[in-house]
């Protein structure tokens, strides 16, 4: 877990609204995540964990303070530069899978490569390989409607890792799944973390899901309430 610093929050504020009605989603958060870490982010609704995840994933920028990603001041980049950063270094997995409907698994996985300008053959090969890595051989040409929830989330994970990202941002990745499927997905994420050295930042509100991570950061009212190494990491 002792890689180089990948993510640092330096007194990061995120505020919405103006004057009396100003809400501080993040109120001067300091945070550091090293590359190769598997971090669970927890906290009740409105604690600021989602805002923090959006900033970590370069989808959002801080109102004040500095967010640096791979040593880049990502909080000050414009939309298109952040899009490029996401395309090159960040993979996303969402609670609701967020696959394109009526589009086959392999086409979904190819999507991020299209925005890199990769050739069709190369895209296809990489996508097939990523689908194999998440254990979906034989399902490449199924559409999301023809796949179970667990399988859809595997497609989403394949889409996130097909670009060989540095960071995987997972927002409640098992929120829609039953217990058995949840453990399968968490084992997959753990494997990707250990085998590929993929840094994972995962929002969850389930303690047994958070237990798969090495470290848990708890948010409360826009602050980091606790930040601790998990003593008992769940074993795959």
């Amino acid at each position: 877990m002792s890689g180089s610093l990948l993510i640092t929050f330096d007194k990061v504020w995120k505020s919405y609204g103006q004057g009396e009605a100003t809400v501080h989603a993040l109120a001067g958060v300091d945070l550091a995540i090293r590359s190769g870490e598997f971090v669970a982010i927890m906290g009740p609704s409105g604690s600021g964990k989602s805002t923090a995840m959006n900033i970590i994933g370069c989808l959002d920028t801080p109102t004040a303070g500095t967010y640096s990603f791979m040593g880049i001041d990502a909080g000050r980049l414009d939309r298109n530069r952040r899009a490029m950063l996401r395309n090159l270094y960040v993979g996303f997995v969402f609670q609701g899978y967020n696959l394109l409907p009526r589009t086959t698994a392999v086409e979904n996985v190819e999507l991020p490569l299209i925005y890199r300008g990769a050739a069709a053959r190369e895209r296809h090969d990489l996508a097939m390989k990523a689908l194999a890595e998440v254990g979906l051989v034989g399902r490449e040409h199924h559409t999301p409607a023809e796949l179970s929830g667990g399988q859809q989330q595997r497609v989403a994970i394949a889409r996130a890792i097909v670009t060989r990202p540095t960071l995987l941002v997972a927002d409640e990745p098992t929120g829609n799944l039953d217990t058995a499927r949840t453990h399968e997905i968490m084992e997959l994420l753990t494997r990707l973390n250990t085998e590929l050295g993929l840094t994972i930042a995962m929002v969850t509100h389930e303690a047994d899901v958070a237990a798969y991570a090495e470290r848990t950061i708890r948010f409360l009212d826009g602050h980091v309430a606790s930040d601790a190494v998990n003593l008992e990491v769940a074993q795959p």
Partner: peptide
Amino acid sequence: REIGIRLAIGAHEKH
């Protein structure tokens, strides 16, 4: 939502 997904995984405005 589809636009959101595309933007999240790295599509530029022009795409």
